[in-house]
Write a protein that binds this DNA or RNA. Sequence first.
RNA 1: GCCCCCAUCGUCUAGUGGCCUAGGACACCACCCUUUCAAGGUGGCGGCACGGGUUCGAAUCCCGUUGGGGGUGCCA
Length: 470
Amino acid sequence: MRMTDAPRYRFAPSPTGFFHVGGARTALYNWALALRTGGTFVLRIEDTDESRNSPEWTQGIIDALSWLGIDSNSPQFEGPYFQSHNAALHVAAAQRIFDAGHAYWCDLTPDQVQERAKETGKQGYDGYSRDRGLTGGPGQVLRFRVPAGSTVVTDLVRGDVEFANDTIEDFVLLRSNGSPMFLLANVVDDIEMRITNVVRAEEHLPNTPKQQMLWDSLGHTPPIWAHVPVLVNEQRKKLSKRRDKVALEQYRAEGILPDAMINYLMTLGWAPAGDTEIVPWSLMVDEFRLEDVNHSPAFFDVKKLAAFNGDYIRAMTIDGFIAACAPHLETTEAWPHERFNADVFAAIAPLVQTRVVTLSEVPAMVDFFFLQDPTIDQAAWDKTMSADFARDVLKDFAAAIATAEWNHDSLKQILESWTEARELKLGKTQAPIRVAVTGRTVGPPLFESIEILGREESLRRITASIARLG
RNA sequence: GCCCCCAUCGUCUAGUGGCCUAGGACACCACCCUUUCAAGGUGGCGGCACGGGUUCGAAUCCCGUUGGGGGUGCCA
Protein backbone atom coordinates (compact mmCIF):
# COMPACT_ATOMS: atom_id res chain seq x y z
CA MET A 1 0.00 0.00 0.00
CA ARG A 2 1.46 3.34 -0.98
CA MET A 3 1.53 5.91 1.78
CA THR A 4 -0.90 8.14 -0.10
CA ASP A 5 -3.42 5.32 -0.08
CA ALA A 6 -3.15 4.73 3.63
CA PRO A 7 -6.31 5.60 5.50
CA ARG A 8 -6.53 8.79 7.47
CA TYR A 9 -8.55 8.58 10.65
CA ARG A 10 -9.63 11.73 12.32
CA PHE A 11 -10.16 12.16 16.00
CA ALA A 12 -12.06 15.31 16.81
CA PRO A 13 -12.72 16.15 20.45
CA SER A 14 -14.43 19.39 21.32
CA PRO A 15 -12.88 21.70 23.89
CA THR A 16 -15.00 20.84 26.92
CA GLY A 17 -12.22 21.32 29.42
CA PHE A 18 -11.67 17.68 30.22
CA PHE A 19 -11.08 14.47 28.34
CA HIS A 20 -14.11 12.20 28.29
CA VAL A 21 -13.74 8.43 28.70
CA GLY A 22 -16.06 8.02 25.73
CA GLY A 23 -13.72 10.15 23.67
CA ALA A 24 -10.85 8.08 24.96
CA ARG A 25 -12.42 4.93 23.60
CA THR A 26 -13.05 6.49 20.20
CA ALA A 27 -9.47 7.72 20.14
CA LEU A 28 -8.25 4.22 20.91
CA TYR A 29 -10.35 2.73 18.14
CA ASN A 30 -8.95 5.24 15.66
CA TRP A 31 -5.41 4.71 16.87
CA ALA A 32 -5.64 0.92 16.73
CA LEU A 33 -6.96 1.10 13.19
CA ALA A 34 -4.32 3.59 12.11
CA LEU A 35 -1.59 1.38 13.52
CA ARG A 36 -2.82 -1.75 11.84
CA THR A 37 -3.44 -0.19 8.45
CA GLY A 38 -0.31 1.92 8.43
CA GLY A 39 -2.61 4.92 8.37
CA THR A 40 -2.63 8.24 10.14
CA PHE A 41 -4.36 9.46 13.26
CA VAL A 42 -5.37 13.05 12.68
CA LEU A 43 -6.13 15.14 15.74
CA ARG A 44 -8.36 18.12 15.20
CA ILE A 45 -9.63 20.36 17.94
CA GLU A 46 -13.24 20.80 17.06
CA ASP A 47 -14.72 24.21 17.61
CA THR A 48 -15.58 26.96 15.17
CA ASP A 49 -15.34 29.48 17.97
CA GLU A 50 -11.73 30.53 18.37
CA SER A 51 -12.34 31.91 21.84
CA ARG A 52 -13.09 28.49 23.19
CA ASN A 53 -9.75 27.05 22.16
CA SER A 54 -7.17 27.18 24.87
CA PRO A 55 -3.57 26.04 24.84
CA GLU A 56 -4.18 24.36 28.19
CA TRP A 57 -6.98 22.24 26.80
CA THR A 58 -4.98 21.31 23.75
CA GLN A 59 -2.00 20.32 25.85
CA GLY A 60 -4.32 18.46 28.21
CA ILE A 61 -5.72 16.41 25.41
CA ILE A 62 -2.31 15.61 24.00
CA ASP A 63 -1.21 14.52 27.48
CA ALA A 64 -4.29 12.38 27.89
CA LEU A 65 -3.75 10.79 24.50
CA SER A 66 -0.15 10.12 25.30
CA TRP A 67 -1.19 8.52 28.61
CA LEU A 68 -3.29 6.17 26.49
CA GLY A 69 -0.24 5.37 24.40
CA ILE A 70 -1.27 7.61 21.52
CA ASP A 71 2.00 9.37 20.99
CA SER A 72 1.86 12.76 19.32
CA ASN A 73 5.48 12.32 18.23
CA SER A 74 4.67 9.21 16.26
CA PRO A 75 4.95 9.53 12.48
CA GLN A 76 1.41 8.17 12.37
CA PHE A 77 0.12 11.04 14.44
CA GLU A 78 -0.83 14.29 12.76
CA GLY A 79 -1.99 17.53 14.29
CA PRO A 80 -3.31 19.11 16.31
CA TYR A 81 -5.30 21.03 13.76
CA PHE A 82 -7.74 23.69 14.83
CA GLN A 83 -11.07 23.92 13.16
CA SER A 84 -11.40 27.53 14.19
CA HIS A 85 -8.29 28.44 12.19
CA ASN A 86 -9.97 27.51 8.94
CA ALA A 87 -12.98 29.81 8.98
CA ALA A 88 -12.03 31.46 5.67
CA LEU A 89 -11.92 28.07 4.01
CA HIS A 90 -15.31 27.17 5.42
CA VAL A 91 -16.86 30.38 4.13
CA ALA A 92 -15.33 29.91 0.69
CA ALA A 93 -16.79 26.41 0.54
CA ALA A 94 -20.19 27.78 1.47
CA GLN A 95 -19.88 30.23 -1.37
CA ARG A 96 -19.11 27.42 -3.79
CA ILE A 97 -22.15 25.51 -2.58
CA PHE A 98 -24.26 28.62 -3.11
CA ASP A 99 -22.79 29.22 -6.57
CA ALA A 100 -23.67 25.67 -7.54
CA GLY A 101 -27.24 26.30 -6.49
CA HIS A 102 -27.21 24.00 -3.51
CA ALA A 103 -27.83 26.76 -1.00
CA TYR A 104 -29.85 29.93 -0.59
CA TRP A 105 -30.07 32.93 1.69
CA CYS A 106 -32.78 33.38 4.25
CA ASP A 107 -33.64 36.37 6.42
CA LEU A 108 -35.87 34.66 8.95
CA THR A 109 -34.77 34.91 12.56
CA PRO A 110 -34.92 31.80 14.76
CA ASP A 111 -38.03 33.26 16.39
CA GLN A 112 -39.72 33.76 13.05
CA VAL A 113 -38.87 30.23 11.99
CA GLN A 114 -40.47 28.95 15.15
CA GLU A 115 -43.47 31.16 14.60
CA ARG A 116 -44.04 29.75 11.13
CA ALA A 117 -43.58 26.21 12.39
CA LYS A 118 -46.29 26.83 14.93
CA GLU A 119 -48.65 28.14 12.26
CA THR A 120 -48.09 25.27 9.84
CA GLY A 121 -48.09 22.73 12.65
CA LYS A 122 -44.87 21.28 11.36
CA GLN A 123 -41.51 20.99 12.99
CA GLY A 124 -38.48 23.05 12.04
CA TYR A 125 -37.74 25.28 9.08
CA ASP A 126 -40.18 24.98 6.19
CA GLY A 127 -38.03 26.20 3.30
CA TYR A 128 -39.67 29.63 3.26
CA SER A 129 -36.84 31.39 1.40
CA ARG A 130 -35.98 28.62 -1.04
CA ASP A 131 -37.18 30.56 -4.09
CA ARG A 132 -37.07 34.12 -2.84
CA GLY A 133 -33.75 34.78 -4.50
CA LEU A 134 -32.18 36.69 -1.61
CA THR A 135 -28.61 37.72 -2.27
CA GLY A 136 -27.15 37.65 1.19
CA GLY A 137 -26.03 40.33 3.57
CA PRO A 138 -26.31 41.21 7.23
CA GLY A 139 -29.08 39.37 9.03
CA GLN A 140 -29.25 36.59 6.47
CA VAL A 141 -28.18 32.99 6.94
CA LEU A 142 -27.13 30.63 4.21
CA ARG A 143 -29.19 27.46 4.18
CA PHE A 144 -28.47 24.24 2.38
CA ARG A 145 -31.06 23.26 -0.18
CA VAL A 146 -31.80 19.66 0.81
CA PRO A 147 -32.64 17.81 -2.42
CA ALA A 148 -35.59 15.48 -2.88
CA GLY A 149 -35.11 11.76 -2.51
CA SER A 150 -33.24 9.94 0.14
CA THR A 151 -29.73 9.62 1.48
CA VAL A 152 -28.13 6.32 2.31
CA VAL A 153 -25.35 6.32 4.83
CA THR A 154 -23.16 3.25 4.57
CA ASP A 155 -21.77 2.55 7.99
CA LEU A 156 -19.16 -0.03 8.89
CA VAL A 157 -20.78 -0.96 12.15
CA ARG A 158 -24.44 -0.50 11.24
CA GLY A 159 -24.70 -1.28 7.57
CA ASP A 160 -26.87 0.90 5.29
CA VAL A 161 -29.03 3.47 7.00
CA GLU A 162 -31.54 5.28 4.83
CA PHE A 163 -32.87 8.74 5.56
CA ALA A 164 -35.77 10.32 3.68
CA ASN A 165 -34.53 13.77 2.68
CA ASP A 166 -37.89 15.39 3.40
CA THR A 167 -37.34 14.67 7.08
CA ILE A 168 -34.20 16.77 6.96
CA GLU A 169 -34.76 20.52 7.08
CA ASP A 170 -32.73 23.03 5.10
CA PHE A 171 -30.00 23.46 7.67
CA VAL A 172 -27.86 26.53 8.20
CA LEU A 173 -24.37 26.69 6.70
CA LEU A 174 -23.44 30.25 7.54
CA ARG A 175 -24.78 32.21 10.49
CA SER A 176 -26.20 35.69 9.99
CA ASN A 177 -22.88 37.08 11.21
CA GLY A 178 -21.15 35.19 8.43
CA SER A 179 -19.47 32.59 10.60
CA PRO A 180 -19.57 28.94 9.52
CA MET A 181 -21.57 26.29 11.34
CA PHE A 182 -19.90 23.24 12.82
CA LEU A 183 -21.40 20.80 10.34
CA LEU A 184 -20.01 22.68 7.33
CA ALA A 185 -16.67 23.32 8.98
CA ASN A 186 -16.39 19.68 9.78
CA VAL A 187 -16.92 18.54 6.24
CA VAL A 188 -14.65 21.17 4.74
CA ASP A 189 -11.89 20.26 7.18
CA ASP A 190 -12.32 16.56 6.52
CA ILE A 191 -11.99 17.20 2.80
CA GLU A 192 -9.07 19.53 3.32
CA MET A 193 -7.27 17.03 5.54
CA ARG A 194 -8.04 14.20 3.14
CA ILE A 195 -9.84 12.20 5.83
CA THR A 196 -10.88 8.79 4.57
CA ASN A 197 -12.38 7.21 7.69
CA VAL A 198 -14.62 8.74 10.30
CA VAL A 199 -15.03 6.72 13.49
CA ARG A 200 -17.15 8.50 16.05
CA ALA A 201 -19.96 8.02 18.54
CA GLU A 202 -23.44 6.99 17.45
CA GLU A 203 -24.96 10.29 18.52
CA HIS A 204 -23.61 11.74 15.27
CA LEU A 205 -25.42 9.28 13.04
CA PRO A 206 -28.54 11.43 12.49
CA ASN A 207 -26.36 14.29 11.26
CA THR A 208 -24.41 12.12 8.90
CA PRO A 209 -26.80 12.40 5.93
CA LYS A 210 -26.41 16.18 6.12
CA GLN A 211 -22.66 15.90 6.07
CA GLN A 212 -22.82 13.42 3.26
CA MET A 213 -24.91 15.83 1.18
CA LEU A 214 -22.29 18.47 1.83
CA TRP A 215 -19.53 16.17 0.64
CA ASP A 216 -21.57 15.51 -2.50
CA SER A 217 -22.32 19.16 -3.12
CA LEU A 218 -18.63 19.97 -2.82
CA GLY A 219 -17.85 17.27 -5.35
CA HIS A 220 -16.14 14.79 -3.10
CA THR A 221 -16.75 11.18 -2.15
CA PRO A 222 -17.78 10.87 1.50
CA PRO A 223 -15.48 9.03 3.87
CA ILE A 224 -16.09 5.57 5.26
CA TRP A 225 -18.33 6.09 8.26
CA ALA A 226 -18.42 4.08 11.45
CA HIS A 227 -20.68 5.02 14.32
CA VAL A 228 -19.86 3.21 17.51
CA PRO A 229 -22.36 2.90 20.36
CA VAL A 230 -22.30 5.45 23.13
CA LEU A 231 -21.21 4.78 26.69
CA VAL A 232 -23.99 4.96 29.27
CA ASN A 233 -24.42 5.11 33.03
CA GLU A 234 -26.47 2.78 35.22
CA GLN A 235 -29.61 4.63 34.14
CA ARG A 236 -28.67 3.77 30.56
CA LYS A 237 -28.25 7.43 29.72
CA LYS A 238 -25.35 8.76 27.73
CA LEU A 239 -22.45 9.53 30.05
CA SER A 240 -22.49 13.21 30.93
CA LYS A 241 -20.19 15.50 32.81
CA ARG A 242 -22.94 16.61 35.16
CA ARG A 243 -24.14 13.22 36.32
CA ASP A 244 -21.24 10.91 35.84
CA LYS A 245 -17.59 10.50 36.51
CA VAL A 246 -16.35 10.76 32.97
CA ALA A 247 -13.07 12.63 33.09
CA LEU A 248 -10.19 10.43 32.11
CA GLU A 249 -7.92 12.56 34.25
CA GLN A 250 -9.90 11.61 37.33
CA TYR A 251 -9.29 7.92 36.81
CA ARG A 252 -5.68 8.61 36.11
CA ALA A 253 -5.34 10.55 39.37
CA GLU A 254 -6.94 7.70 41.25
CA GLY A 255 -4.25 5.36 40.17
CA ILE A 256 -5.91 3.55 37.32
CA LEU A 257 -3.11 2.23 35.13
CA PRO A 258 -3.20 3.33 31.50
CA ASP A 259 -2.93 -0.25 30.27
CA ALA A 260 -5.92 -1.24 32.36
CA MET A 261 -7.94 1.72 31.12
CA ILE A 262 -7.00 1.01 27.52
CA ASN A 263 -7.83 -2.67 27.85
CA TYR A 264 -11.13 -2.00 29.58
CA LEU A 265 -12.22 0.70 27.16
CA MET A 266 -11.47 -1.57 24.21
CA THR A 267 -13.72 -4.30 25.63
CA LEU A 268 -16.70 -1.96 25.76
CA GLY A 269 -18.61 -2.94 22.67
CA TRP A 270 -16.02 -5.41 21.51
CA ALA A 271 -14.24 -8.47 22.81
CA PRO A 272 -11.00 -10.17 21.85
CA ALA A 273 -11.30 -13.81 20.85
CA GLY A 274 -10.81 -16.38 23.56
CA ASP A 275 -11.72 -16.74 27.19
CA THR A 276 -9.88 -13.79 28.59
CA GLU A 277 -10.50 -10.10 28.13
CA ILE A 278 -7.18 -9.06 29.61
CA VAL A 279 -5.04 -8.92 26.53
CA PRO A 280 -2.07 -6.85 25.37
CA TRP A 281 -2.54 -3.82 23.20
CA SER A 282 -0.62 -5.40 20.32
CA LEU A 283 -3.16 -8.19 20.16
CA MET A 284 -6.05 -5.74 20.15
CA VAL A 285 -4.43 -3.81 17.33
CA ASP A 286 -4.24 -7.04 15.36
CA GLU A 287 -7.75 -8.19 16.10
CA PHE A 288 -9.91 -5.10 16.46
CA ARG A 289 -12.43 -4.75 13.66
CA LEU A 290 -15.10 -2.08 13.38
CA GLU A 291 -17.37 -4.68 11.83
CA ASP A 292 -17.26 -6.62 15.09
CA VAL A 293 -18.26 -3.73 17.32
CA ASN A 294 -21.54 -4.23 19.13
CA HIS A 295 -24.53 -2.13 18.13
CA SER A 296 -25.93 -1.36 21.53
CA PRO A 297 -24.79 1.13 24.18
CA ALA A 298 -22.38 -0.13 26.81
CA PHE A 299 -22.48 0.57 30.52
CA PHE A 300 -19.24 2.01 31.84
CA ASP A 301 -18.72 -0.28 34.81
CA VAL A 302 -16.24 1.20 37.25
CA LYS A 303 -16.13 -2.05 39.21
CA LYS A 304 -14.97 -3.97 36.22
CA LEU A 305 -12.45 -1.28 35.41
CA ALA A 306 -11.13 -1.67 38.95
CA ALA A 307 -10.93 -5.43 38.53
CA PHE A 308 -8.93 -4.99 35.35
CA ASN A 309 -6.72 -2.53 37.16
CA GLY A 310 -6.10 -4.94 40.02
CA ASP A 311 -5.09 -7.50 37.48
CA TYR A 312 -2.64 -5.14 35.85
CA ILE A 313 -1.24 -4.05 39.21
CA ARG A 314 -0.55 -7.64 40.18
CA ALA A 315 1.10 -8.27 36.85
CA MET A 316 3.64 -5.48 37.43
CA THR A 317 7.19 -6.20 38.52
CA ILE A 318 7.80 -5.13 42.09
CA ASP A 319 10.07 -2.32 40.94
CA GLY A 320 7.44 -1.20 38.49
CA PHE A 321 4.85 -1.24 41.20
CA ILE A 322 7.01 0.79 43.58
CA ALA A 323 7.70 3.32 40.86
CA ALA A 324 4.02 3.58 40.00
CA CYS A 325 3.16 4.19 43.65
CA ALA A 326 5.67 7.01 44.02
CA PRO A 327 3.43 9.87 42.88
CA HIS A 328 0.70 8.78 45.26
CA LEU A 329 3.11 8.43 48.16
CA GLU A 330 4.67 11.81 47.52
CA THR A 331 1.43 13.72 47.42
CA THR A 332 -0.46 11.95 50.17
CA GLU A 333 -1.59 13.71 53.29
CA ALA A 334 -1.84 10.43 55.19
CA TRP A 335 1.41 11.24 56.98
CA PRO A 336 3.84 14.14 57.37
CA HIS A 337 5.85 14.19 54.19
CA GLU A 338 9.26 14.05 55.92
CA ARG A 339 8.46 10.85 57.77
CA PHE A 340 8.23 8.78 54.59
CA ASN A 341 10.92 6.13 54.17
CA ALA A 342 11.34 4.65 50.72
CA ASP A 343 13.21 1.59 52.01
CA VAL A 344 10.41 0.73 54.39
CA PHE A 345 7.88 1.05 51.59
CA ALA A 346 9.98 -1.07 49.26
CA ALA A 347 10.07 -3.78 51.93
CA ILE A 348 6.30 -3.89 52.38
CA ALA A 349 5.38 -3.22 48.75
CA PRO A 350 5.15 -6.87 47.63
CA LEU A 351 2.50 -7.47 50.28
CA VAL A 352 0.59 -4.34 49.29
CA GLN A 353 0.57 -5.20 45.62
CA THR A 354 -2.04 -7.94 45.87
CA ARG A 355 -4.20 -5.89 48.18
CA VAL A 356 -5.09 -2.82 46.13
CA VAL A 357 -7.08 -2.32 42.96
CA THR A 358 -6.07 1.30 42.48
CA LEU A 359 -2.81 3.00 43.37
CA SER A 360 -4.60 5.66 45.39
CA GLU A 361 -5.44 3.04 48.01
CA VAL A 362 -1.79 2.47 48.80
CA PRO A 363 -1.09 5.30 51.25
CA ALA A 364 -3.97 4.37 53.55
CA MET A 365 -2.72 0.82 53.66
CA VAL A 366 0.79 1.65 54.80
CA ASP A 367 0.24 4.85 56.76
CA PHE A 368 1.05 3.25 60.13
CA PHE A 369 4.66 2.85 59.06
CA PHE A 370 5.09 6.56 58.57
CA LEU A 371 3.05 7.97 61.40
CA GLN A 372 4.51 8.83 64.77
CA ASP A 373 1.73 6.75 66.28
CA PRO A 374 -0.80 4.67 64.42
CA THR A 375 -4.26 6.15 64.16
CA ILE A 376 -6.28 3.85 66.38
CA ASP A 377 -9.68 3.06 64.99
CA GLN A 378 -12.03 3.14 67.95
CA ALA A 379 -14.35 0.41 66.69
CA ALA A 380 -11.39 -1.85 65.98
CA TRP A 381 -9.99 -1.16 69.44
CA ASP A 382 -13.28 -1.87 71.20
CA LYS A 383 -13.80 -5.08 69.30
CA THR A 384 -10.38 -6.60 69.76
CA MET A 385 -9.36 -5.31 73.18
CA SER A 386 -12.51 -6.62 74.79
CA ALA A 387 -11.22 -10.18 74.36
CA ASP A 388 -10.35 -11.68 77.73
CA PHE A 389 -6.88 -12.59 76.50
CA ALA A 390 -6.12 -9.18 75.01
CA ARG A 391 -3.99 -7.82 77.83
CA ASP A 392 -2.11 -11.09 78.29
CA VAL A 393 -1.31 -11.54 74.64
CA LEU A 394 0.02 -8.01 74.37
CA LYS A 395 2.19 -8.33 77.48
CA ASP A 396 3.52 -11.79 76.71
CA PHE A 397 4.15 -11.02 73.06
CA ALA A 398 5.95 -7.81 73.97
CA ALA A 399 8.11 -9.61 76.48
CA ALA A 400 8.97 -12.32 73.99
CA ILE A 401 9.83 -10.13 71.04
CA ALA A 402 12.08 -7.94 73.15
CA THR A 403 14.78 -10.54 72.74
CA ALA A 404 13.50 -12.67 69.86
CA GLU A 405 15.33 -13.36 66.66
CA TRP A 406 14.13 -10.60 64.37
CA ASN A 407 12.28 -12.06 61.42
CA HIS A 408 8.62 -12.64 60.74
CA ASP A 409 8.87 -16.43 61.00
CA SER A 410 10.13 -16.39 64.53
CA LEU A 411 7.67 -13.67 65.48
CA LYS A 412 4.91 -15.85 64.14
CA GLN A 413 6.20 -18.86 66.04
CA ILE A 414 6.12 -16.94 69.28
CA LEU A 415 2.47 -16.12 68.91
CA GLU A 416 1.67 -19.57 67.58
CA SER A 417 2.97 -21.39 70.61
CA TRP A 418 1.31 -18.86 72.91
CA THR A 419 -1.95 -19.47 71.08
CA GLU A 420 -1.70 -23.24 71.04
CA ALA A 421 -0.94 -23.38 74.75
CA ARG A 422 -4.26 -21.72 75.39
CA GLU A 423 -6.18 -23.59 72.69
CA LEU A 424 -7.06 -20.42 70.86
CA LYS A 425 -6.94 -19.46 67.21
CA LEU A 426 -4.13 -17.42 65.74
CA GLY A 427 -6.72 -15.44 63.84
CA LYS A 428 -8.10 -14.26 67.16
CA THR A 429 -4.95 -13.71 69.14
CA GLN A 430 -3.20 -11.68 66.48
CA ALA A 431 -5.99 -9.13 66.47
CA PRO A 432 -5.06 -7.09 69.56
CA ILE A 433 -1.45 -6.96 68.42
CA ARG A 434 -2.52 -5.83 64.98
CA VAL A 435 -4.59 -3.01 66.40
CA ALA A 436 -1.79 -1.99 68.74
CA VAL A 437 0.72 -1.82 65.93
CA THR A 438 -1.34 -0.66 62.95
CA GLY A 439 -4.45 0.82 64.54
CA ARG A 440 -6.78 -1.31 62.46
CA THR A 441 -8.08 -4.86 62.15
CA VAL A 442 -7.16 -5.18 58.50
CA GLY A 443 -3.94 -4.49 56.70
CA PRO A 444 -0.80 -6.12 55.38
CA PRO A 445 0.35 -9.36 57.03
CA LEU A 446 1.12 -8.66 60.68
CA PHE A 447 4.43 -10.35 61.38
CA GLU A 448 5.99 -9.01 58.21
CA SER A 449 4.78 -5.54 59.16
CA ILE A 450 6.27 -5.85 62.64
CA GLU A 451 9.54 -7.07 61.24
CA ILE A 452 9.77 -4.07 58.95
CA LEU A 453 8.61 -1.63 61.63
CA GLY A 454 11.46 -2.76 63.85
CA ARG A 455 11.80 -4.12 67.35
CA GLU A 456 11.99 -0.84 69.20
CA GLU A 457 9.03 0.83 67.52
CA SER A 458 6.85 -2.28 67.66
CA LEU A 459 7.54 -2.68 71.35
CA ARG A 460 6.78 0.96 71.96
CA ARG A 461 3.39 0.68 70.25
CA ILE A 462 2.41 -2.51 72.04
CA THR A 463 3.48 -1.06 75.37
CA ALA A 464 1.48 2.07 74.67
CA SER A 465 -1.59 -0.03 74.03
CA ILE A 466 -1.12 -1.94 77.26
CA ALA A 467 -0.96 1.37 79.07
CA ARG A 468 -4.04 2.55 77.24
CA LEU A 469 -5.88 -0.57 78.37
CA GLY A 470 -5.35 0.71 81.90
C1' G B 1 -44.42 15.20 17.48
C1' C B 2 -40.96 13.59 13.60
C1' C B 3 -36.41 10.88 12.21
C1' C B 4 -32.67 7.30 13.38
C1' C B 5 -30.37 3.43 16.25
C1' C B 6 -30.62 -0.65 19.60
C1' A B 7 -32.48 -5.37 22.29
C1' U B 8 -28.12 -12.60 24.81
C1' C B 9 -27.02 -13.73 32.57
C1' G B 10 -27.32 -7.72 37.24
C1' U B 11 -23.08 -5.72 33.89
C1' C B 12 -19.45 -6.26 29.52
C1' U B 13 -19.56 -9.78 25.87
C1' A B 14 -19.05 -14.94 22.51
C1' G B 15 -22.53 -16.48 19.15
C1' U B 16 -23.51 -14.66 11.62
C1' G B 17 -29.42 -21.26 10.75
C1' G B 18 -27.74 -27.39 13.18
C1' C B 19 -21.27 -27.50 16.96
C1' C B 20 -26.19 -24.08 22.23
C1' U B 21 -28.18 -28.59 27.50
C1' A B 22 -26.25 -20.65 25.02
C1' G B 23 -19.54 -20.07 26.26
C1' G B 24 -16.30 -16.40 28.89
C1' A B 25 -15.26 -11.98 31.99
C1' C B 26 -16.81 -8.53 36.12
C1' A B 27 -20.04 -8.59 40.27
C1' C B 28 -22.40 -11.87 43.82
C1' C B 29 -22.57 -16.58 46.88
C1' A B 30 -20.16 -21.09 48.88
C1' C B 31 -15.96 -23.97 49.85
C1' C B 32 -10.49 -24.63 49.91
C1' C B 33 -6.00 -22.09 51.28
C1' U B 34 -4.88 -18.69 55.28
C1' U B 35 -1.62 -14.51 60.81
C1' U B 36 -6.39 -9.95 59.48
C1' C B 37 -7.58 -8.41 54.57
C1' A B 38 -6.44 -9.59 49.89
C1' A B 39 -4.47 -12.67 46.10
C1' G B 40 -4.95 -17.73 44.29
C1' G B 41 -7.87 -22.43 43.52
C1' U B 42 -12.66 -25.03 43.03
C1' G B 43 -17.77 -24.80 42.50
C1' G B 44 -22.54 -22.21 42.29
C1' C B 45 -26.35 -18.55 41.04
C1' G B 46 -27.92 -16.22 36.64
C1' G B 47 -29.72 -14.68 30.18
C1' C B 48 -31.56 -15.14 24.22
C1' A B 49 -37.80 -8.88 25.96
C1' C B 50 -42.73 -10.51 23.83
C1' G B 51 -45.88 -12.23 19.67
C1' G B 52 -46.19 -13.96 14.88
C1' G B 53 -43.91 -15.96 10.63
C1' U B 54 -39.83 -18.47 7.22
C1' U B 55 -37.31 -23.35 7.83
C1' C B 56 -36.73 -30.30 8.70
C1' G B 57 -34.28 -26.99 12.32
C1' A B 58 -33.83 -19.93 14.87
C1' A B 59 -30.43 -16.59 20.06
C1' U B 60 -29.16 -16.29 14.86
C1' C B 61 -33.48 -14.52 8.97
C1' C B 62 -38.42 -11.50 8.21
C1' C B 63 -42.70 -8.70 10.28
C1' G B 64 -45.06 -6.59 14.39
C1' U B 65 -45.35 -5.20 19.65
C1' U B 66 -43.02 -3.53 23.85
C1' G B 67 -38.99 -1.40 26.08
C1' G B 68 -34.54 1.58 25.95
C1' G B 69 -31.30 5.20 23.71
C1' G B 70 -29.87 9.11 20.37
C1' G B 71 -30.99 13.15 17.11
C1' U B 72 -34.08 16.96 15.82
C1' G B 73 -30.15 24.84 17.40
C1' C B 74 -27.98 31.07 13.75
C1' C B 75 -24.32 24.42 19.99
C1' A B 76 -20.24 21.36 19.15
